[in-house]
Simulated assay, not measured.
Amino acid sequence: MKNFEYRSLTKIIFGKDQISNLERELEEFKVRKLLLVYGMSSIKNLGIYEQVIFICNKLDIEVYEEGGVRPNPDMSSVRSGIETCRTNDIDFVLAAGGGSAIDCAKAIAFGTKYDGDPWDVYLLKDKATSALPLGVIITLAATGTETNGNSVISNDETGEKRSVAYPFSVPKFAIIDPSYTLSVDRYHVIAGSMDIMMHVFEQFFSNTLRTETSDYMSMGVIKSVIENTSRYLAGEDGYETRANLSWASTIGLNWILGVDKVGDWATHRLSYPITKEYGITHGYALALIFTSWIRVALKYNSITMIPRLEIIGDMIFDGTDYSLVPDKLDELFSEWGAKVKLSEELKDVTLEEIDKLIENALALGSVGTVIEIDKEKALEIFKNSLGW
C-alpha cells in the first residue's frame, strides 16, 4: 500500500427532495451571479430548472445559462461558457444534469481563470491553477464526476477527446436525488452501470501490493451494481434500486477506492477515440475494450493479474477460476444487452482505421500501469476484441 492523504472536498447532499437545500448552499457561498450549465431537456422535464430559477430569484441571484451541452461535451460549449463568465463577472457555476454537463462546467470554471486556450490544458501543454467555485445537481448514476476533479472534453475541430483532473475542480457540493434517475431509460441505465464498474476496476487493477481493504471495498461496490442492475432488469425498479446505483456511482470515483494504490486507466484512454469517432456511448465503448485488455494484461503481467482476477472470481463469480473471469464479465455484459467485442460493433473496420484510433489514444504517450500500453500492445488489444 502506498502513502496517501485523502480528503473529500465535496459536501454530499443525498436523498429525495434535497434540491430544497440549494438555497442554503448558495447563501453559504454568497453567490451573486451564477452560470447554470445543463444539457438538453432533462432538467426542465424533471422540474430542476424551475426550482433553480425560483431559488435564485428568491436570493436575488442573477442567472446566466449555458444550455444544450451535448453528450461528450465539445470545446465550443466550454468556450461559450467562459465568455459568459468573463463578460458578466460570474462568481459561481452550477451544473445540473449528467456527467457531460458537469464536466463541461468544470472546464468552464477553470477556463475562466486561465489566460490561454483551455484546450492546451487538456493537451497537457500547460496547467490550470484555479477555478470558479462549482456546485452540481446530478441526474444520472454513471460517471461519479459529482465528487471528483476529473473532466473529459471533446474537440470537434481536432477530432480528439482528452481528460484532466484538478483538486480545485472538485465540486463544493453535490445534490444527489436518485428520484431524478427514475426517468433514465434502459440503454443509459446499463451504460451507467458498466461505467461505474469500469471506474472501480480501473482502480482495482494495480501493481501496488497489499491493498486488501480497498480491494474488498471495491468488490462490495461491484456486487451492489450487479445486484441492483439485475433487480432493475427483472422489473424491480424504483427509488431504492436507483438510490443504490447512485451511491455506487459516487463511491466508485471519489477516489476512496484508489487512493492507496496506482490505478491503471488504460481502458478509458483506449476507449476515448472509439466514442469520439463512432459516437458510441462511453459505458458501451468501455465494454468493447475491457476484457480484451484483461487478456493482454494477463499475458504480460501474470504476477499482478492472477491474484486480482482470483479475487473477482471468488467474490463476484462464486469461485470461478481466474482464467475464466474475462469470459464471465463478457457473459454478464451481454446478458445486460451490451456488445463486448469490437467485431460486433465495427464490422467493416479496417486496419488503417484501427491504427488511427490507436494513434489518437496514444497521442500523449503510452497509457496504463499494470502493463505499459504502447502502439504494439494497443493493437494486440484491439485485434483481440476484433477477433483478428
Results as ranks from 00 to 15, higher is better:
387 G>T: 08
121 V>N: 05
204 F>W: 00
333 F>V: 11
100 S>P: 09
214 S>Y: 15
143 T>H: 10
50 E>Y: 13
288 L>Y: 00
193 S>M: 11
341 K>V: 04
4 F>E: 07
60 D>H: 13
119 W>C: 05
6 Y>R: 01
196 I>D: 05
283 G>M: 00
110 F>Q: 00
308 R>F: 11
84 T>Q: 14
63 V>E: 02
3 N>Y: 12
272 Y>V: 10
279 G>L: 11
164 V>R: 12
357 L>P: 11
330 D>P: 09
36 L>C: 03
93 V>T: 02
373 I>W: 04
6 Y>V: 08
157 E>I: 15
259 V>H: 10
44 K>Q: 15
98 G>F: 04
80 S>P: 04
71 P>H: 06
265 W>V: 13
200 V>E: 11
335 E>H: 09
355 D>R: 15
86 R>E: 04
213 T>V: 13
191 A>S: 14
127 K>Q: 14
74 D>C: 10
61 I>F: 02
108 I>E: 04
244 N>Q: 14
96 A>Y: 14
100 S>D: 05
64 Y>D: 01
157 E>H: 12
352 E>A: 14
368 G>L: 11
181 T>E: 05
174 A>H: 00
150 N>M: 12
56 C>K: 00
337 G>D: 04
308 R>E: 13
214 S>W: 11
351 L>S: 12
196 I>S: 07
24 R>M: 12
307 P>K: 00
258 G>E: 08
133 P>D: 02
307 P>Q: 07
227 E>T: 15
127 K>Y: 14
278 Y>C: 01
